[in-house]
């Protein structure tokens, strides 16, 4: 069982970080970034070619994060692999010590740096979650037996901000029934919509069946917020944050302040079991945010990987 799973089961308010693997073969870059997260977060998401831009594979990046003494949440998209590749990668990942996985359908290939590529989409994210549960129970998707099955902690994503809200709640229920253990959301910049969503989740009782981990994102400038509002489909950003960032003397400080406030508010929200901090290209800010949000010290890691690192 992963430490991340154990903490959630104990009822701790968890903190996840996020790291984008490099657009190069530079292993040292990942090991270096691990320093920002050690002792600060409980697990780190490793993105899988996010926005369809080619990067180091999330599996190998996750392996390096394990080496660096952290617990990875490996993201896996259905855009680049068919059901054979997905399943074989899951087996390999688990064998390499990766115990948390986040299942995503994936950004469409035309948004990335190889827009001429073929998107696979053999499965969708709900079917990938179902596949993982089957594999955990010792069966491939074909029904064939797995002698030594993986025991992955299965995650899915939810977007509380995009339409249609009612269907999104239905789909969340599908993900739970398919086998999701935790859910990570898009970054929260709109509490009107988020509160409405979490209330609907609570009304269905889903917050009791799955661990909901809300996303937050520190931003450096008002431009970043405006870009997200204009160009990232399915994002919602309240005017309040735009005007605050615009009028701030030091936008970076304001970005941190907004992020810390958001975390504190989410901490008090019923049904939210943790936060997922996703600073895009600004990983170094994570320790400061976690500290200011009064979430330090983190519960002590007890996974075997960590003990190995300490012995060395």
């Amino acid at each position: 069982m992963s430490n991340f799973e154990r903490l959630l089961n104990q009822g701790e308010f968890v903190v996840c970080g996020e790291m984008g693997p490099p657009q190069s073969a530079d292993k040292a870059a990942i090991i270096r970034k691990c320093d920002y997260f050690r002792g600060v977060v409980d697990a780190v998401n490793l993105t899988d070619n996010q926005t369809a831009i080619v990067r180091m594979s999330s599996i190998m990046a996750s392996v390096f994060v394990v080496e660096g003494g952290l617990e990875p949440i490996m993201q896996m998209t259905c855009r680049d692999r068919n059901r054979l590749a997905l399943q074989s990668d899951i087996l390999g990942a688990y064998a390499a010590g990766i115990e948390n996985i986040l299942c995503l359908t994936g950004d469409y290939q035309t948004f990335g740096n190889h827009p001429e590529a073929k998107g696979v989409f053999d499965l969708d994210s709900v079917q990938l979650i179902h596949t993982l549960r089957e594999m955990n129970e010792g069966r491939f998707l074909s029904g064939d037996e797995i002698k030594a099955p993986p025991k992955m902690f299965i995650g899915g994503a939810a977007n509380p901000f995009a339409e249609p809200l009612d269907l999104r709640i239905i789909r969340l229920g599908k993900k739970i029934r398919a086998g999701a253990n935790f859910i990570q959301t898009q970054p929260v910049f709109d509490f009107v919509k988020f509160d409405k969503w979490i209330k609907a989740v609570r009304d269905e009782g889903y917050d009791q069946q799955v661990h909901i981990i809300a996303g937050v994102m520190p931003v450096k400038s008002v431009k970043a917020l405006e870009y997200m509002r204009e160009s990232v489909p399915g994002m919602s950003i309240a005017d309040e944050y735009i005007s605050r960032m615009k009028s701030a003397a030091d936008p970076k400080e304001e970005g941190v302040a907004i992020c810390v406030e958001t975390i504190k508010r989410l901490h008090k929200t019923q049904g939210v079991k943790g936060v997922h901090i996703m600073p895009v290209l600004w990983e170094s800010i994570t320790p400061r945010i976690v500290e200011e949000a009064e979430l330090l010290p983190r519960p002590i890691l007890t996974s075997p990987h960590q003990e190995e690192v300490e012995v060395q």
């Binding site: 469409y108 998107g119 969708d124 079917q127 898009q186 489909p233 399915g234």
Partner: peptide, 20 residues
Amino acid sequence: PKQIRNGPCGGTREKGFCEV
């Protein structure tokens, strides 16, 4: 575009328009 049988994906735009 993603042939999702258990949809929608997270990218639906305002007023229900497609991400792609």
